[in-house]
Design a binder for these strands. Structure first.
Length: 451
RNA sequence: GUGAGUAUAGCUCAGUUGGUUAGAGCGCUGGAUUGUGAUUCCAGAGGUCGCCGGUUCAAAUCCGGUUAUUCACCCCA
């Protein structure tokens, strides 16, 4: 059979794993520094935990796990006869693959509320699955790196998360622009434009501003049933750049003013912080997820510094006033952000910013010429490993050329060649694969040299 | 869910208006070189041209269907 993997999934070569670990480690180290703790949740959740949390579109993209056993026996007869998949699902599937890390986290907080101290600061780096059509930079299996704090509505956390973004991308040497907005400001705009019920439609439309331009947004607003007068008002407010001007424009909306105040406070916390990257207020930032209620964030590669990089957002997040109430726990505000590790990988590759392969790789390969020297080499191997040197032995004393080629393919910096002469004298041939130089040294001296 | 492209050797791809035995580069195996890799030279192995059907004297090539995959839209990281 022809080997293959499911669509939207990927295998990783050793070098790719090293590079992905570099990204994860960089992110993790910053999370830990800011006082966040790791948690993990299962790849499968009960389907009831997941359904209805991501909207109609999200339900469609959920991977469902078929029940074990004779699942059709217990299937809903009516739905089965009518070939109604949607109605059938609950009777043949009770589990699904997690779609993101936030909803499982909400469930987790409710289940372990008595064991957690609030504010609870957690990070989580695990894969999630979506049955989306794959395309460039989008997969059906991908990692999310989430960092959230629940149990406090302090705006100092918004400021802290902005700093985490700044620090991580600073360490990765990617120049970024973090944009910040506030859902309350967007609600205020909808109020002032006289369409408070259509705020979601409005935000979905204006979220596309940088992609389709003001013309496209105007069109989409119209298509979503928003009247001309309201569209004109929305456009007028979107043109505002300064918070002070916005305050005046939203004077009629209590919610809108609150949003402006929140943003102002976040900036106040950040006064004096030395940014490595750019932070800017962007009134057009909307973000699709409906559960955000306060500040929202999105990070993009700074196209001024990296003009050739074409990539969507590489991070995003925001505040939610109430995520756990669907699981029966009220008054649990939170705020969190996520890093798009897969996209960060593509950006680092595009910019050639991955560090050189680290010393964790194989340091020396031993080569024996015949059966006897192969056994001798095996004993030398043990000494090297005992001295904590990453060492390996070619498994058979085959033709030297073949063994050398393997060493070359493995990118080993040194090889040790062992034949009759070496065994007689105890002086092994240590060859530097970089410059081809070779010298005879005792195993003790080799260990000193390679340490 | 909607639309477009692609499918030929292990990998990346050529393949003319349809015409004898389908090619290249890389990789692999052996040799030049029986104690030395990455460079060079020589030789060799390796293909049901995604699958099914149709048109034709003749199909990798044209047509229909199907599967896989890529890209874009919707949505999203």
């Amino acid at each position: 059979m022809k080997p293959s993997i499911p669509k939207g999934t990927r295998d990783f070569l050793p070098q790719q794993v090293n590079r992905r670990n570099y990204i994860f480690e960089t992110i993790r180290s910053v999370f830990v520094k800011y006082g966040y703790q790791a948690i993990e949740t299962p790849v499968m959740e009960n389907l009831s935990t997941l359904t209805g949390k991501y909207g109609e579109e999200g339900d469609r993209l959920l991977f469902k796990v078929l029940n074990n056993g004779d699942f059709l026996k217990k299937a809903n007869e009516e739905a089965l006869q009518e070939r109604n998949s949607t109605a059938l699902i609950s009777s043949i599937s009770k589990r699904g693959l997690r779609y993101d890390l936030t909803v499982p986290f909400a469930r987790y907080v409710v289940m372990y509320q008595n064991d957690l101290s609030f504010p609870f600061k957690r990070y989580q780096i695990q894969p999630v699955w979506r049955a989306d059509r794959p395309q460039k930079g989008r997969y059906q299996e991908f990692y999310q790196c989430d960092v959230d704090v629940v149990g406090s509505d302090s705006l100092s956390y918004e400021a802290e998360l902005v700093q985490i973004y700044d620090e991580v991308f600073g360490k990765l040497n990617i120049k970024t622009v973090t944009r910040i907005n506030n859902r309350k400001i967007l609600a205020g705009i909808a109020e002032v434009a006289g369409i408070p019920e259509q705020m979601i439609d409005m935000t979905v439309a204006i979220d596309k501003l940088d992609k389709v331009g003001i013309e496209g947004v105007r069109k989409e607003l119209g298509e979503r049933g928003i009247g001309e007068a309201a569209v004109a008002k929305i456009e007028e407010i979107l043109a505002i750049k300064e918070l002070a001007d916005l305050k005046a424009a939203l004077a009629a909306s209590e919610t809108g003013l609150l949003g402006v105040e929140e943003i102002t406070q976040v900036f106040a916390y950040l006064e004096g912080y030395e940014f490595k990257n750019t932070l800017q207020f962007d009134i057009t930032l909307a973000r699709g997820l409906n559960y955000y209620t306060g500040c929202i964030f999105e990070v993009n590669v700074d196209t001024a510094a990296h003009p050739n990089v074409k990539m969507g957002s590489i991070g995003g997040g925001g505040r939610y006033a109430d995520l756990t109430s669907v699981f029966g726990m009220k008054n649990m505000p939170g705020v969190g952000v996520s890093f798009g590790a897969e996209r960060v990988y593509d950006v680092l590759e595009e910019l050639d910013l991955f560090p050189a392969e680290d010393a964790a790789a194989l340091k020396v390969l031993l080569i024996g010429f015949d059966e006897e020297s192969h056994r001798y080499a095996f004993r030398c191997l043990n000494q090297l490993r005992a001295a904590n040197i990453n060492a390996d032995l070619y498994p058979d004393p085959v033709k030297l050329k073949k063994q050398m080629k393997y060493a070359n393919d493995r990118n080993v910096p040194y090889v040790i060649l062992i034949g009759d002469n070496e065994m007689a004298s105890g002086e092994l041939s240590l060859k530097n694969m970089g410059n081809g130089e070779q010298e005879k040294l005792s195993i003790a001296k080799i260990i000193d040299a390679l340490k």
